[in-house]
Write a protein that binds this DNA or RNA. Structure first.
Lengths: 223, 223
DNA sequence: AGAAACGCTGACAACGCGCTCAGCAAACGG
DNA sequence: CCGTTTGCTGAGCGCGTTGTCAGCGTTTCT
């Protein structure tokens, strides 16, 4: 499940981007305000960001600069009404990964986002320690215990990978559901609990901790 | 003295390329016809080639393919128009050394040509080990087992080349489809699986590994 | 203490995924 | 102009995967 943050104040363009990206299989979140976009990019995990430069409250370039300073390294595609070369250069220098000039075709944005994510998949540190002697490798999409790969089904891996990216944070069930399943999902289902149980049976019972009434946590045993 | 062959049918672009490259200190030869370009590249020595894809009489890709088959291994920079090539370049670029998408800045072409010549002087290898005693040569566009070339169809080679470039990373089927086929791919087709099956029959069953529900991987058995 | 909410488990049936085979259209080559 | 190669499609099959459901233990609240 790939999540995209779209920071765009023009509602019409935003809606069209959302439609195109959703049709391409992405989960899309829209923010029309620079500060809001900055905050979400700072606190949540996105696989890529579509960032308009002319945002209210906080300029797009500033948003990007702040993210990079904070160590956030998700791929960012910049949208700009002005297509000057120096603008482009400045954007790239600040840490943008690609650049599209308005007006643009929706398919072009989709194609470039795909390319960025693909490229990032090869670069992002592919190993995450998740405790209990377990290491999650995002390139090979597998979990190993002291070098030995554990057999995980796709859905099981996705759950573990998502928790690993949120290590140390309590993740509500509803959030897991939204990331693992399509939007239309029955809420009175216990599929997440079943899934967690299955993962525990494979990796050991004490890795994923239950915070009753709140959600699940991985690692960082802070009582 | 560095000689550059420019194969470009658009006279205006050709002239601008010639001016820029000449200003950079290269000796430039221009051909506007695919067959002529092929012939000159076959019989004369050039330090690099700028090759447009939309050539009359003989397609640019065919020209390149013929050169490589004949053992000509000078660096080739491909010029491609956005719509037709763009998306597929990454998967098919395997025969070329670099590519630039139209419209482009002249300085960019000059810079890349310089880079190509420098790289070629260092004789950077174009061979990729893919395990099982197999070697993929991107210049010759062929796969060899202990020196003996294996007969692969173009599509089979493209699949293997793409996986080879992503060696050690699980590549989802959808990503393969996007690189091998046109944008309007049918989602309910099993063409990739059929293709993988055929490649396996040629190179051996254990080279390409299936990660059910995830995709395919090449090499790097981090078991 | 009783009731309700929450989470875990085992069983099960349906579905999805990947593979093979056969067929056919288009491109290629003599 | 005809045979061969190439590559896409569809049907069928086996099996792993996954959501659902019922039941039960535990926690929480009144």
């Amino acid at each position: 499940m790939m999540r995209i943050l779209v920071a765009e104040d023009d509602l019409r363009i935003g809606k069209r981007l959302e439609a195109a990206l959703t049709a391409a299989g992405f989960v899309v979140e829209i923010e029309a305000d620079g500060e809001d976009a900055w905050h979400r990019g700072e606190t949540e995990e996105f696989d890529a960001v579509v960032l308009d430069l002319g945002l209210p409250a906080m300029d797009g370039l500033t948003v990007l600069k702040e993210w990079r300073r904070a160590g956030r390294n998700m791929p960012v595609l910049i949208l700009s009404a002005r297509g000057q070369w120096d603008e482009r250069v400045e954007g790239i220098e600040v840490g943008a990964d690609d650049y599209v000039v308005k007006p643009f075709r929706m398919e072009e944005v989709v194609a470039r986002i795909r390319a960025l994510i693909r490229r990032a998949a090869g670069q992002v540190t592919s190993r995450i320690e998740i405790g209990g002697g377990l290491v999650l490798d995002t390139r090979l999409m597998q979990v190993t215990r002291s070098g030995v790969p554990l057999p995980l089904t796709p859905q099981e891996y996705r759950l573990l990978a998502y928790l690993a990216h949120q290590k140390g944070r309590v993740v509500p069930q509803l959030e897991i559901v939204e990331h693992l399943y399509a939007q239309d999902f029955e809420r009175d289902s216990n599929s997440v609990e079943v899934l967690v149980g299955r993962v525990r049976r494979r990796i050991g019972p004490d890795i994923i901790k239950t915070r009753r009434g709140f959600g699940y946590v991985l690692g960082s045993d802070e009582a």
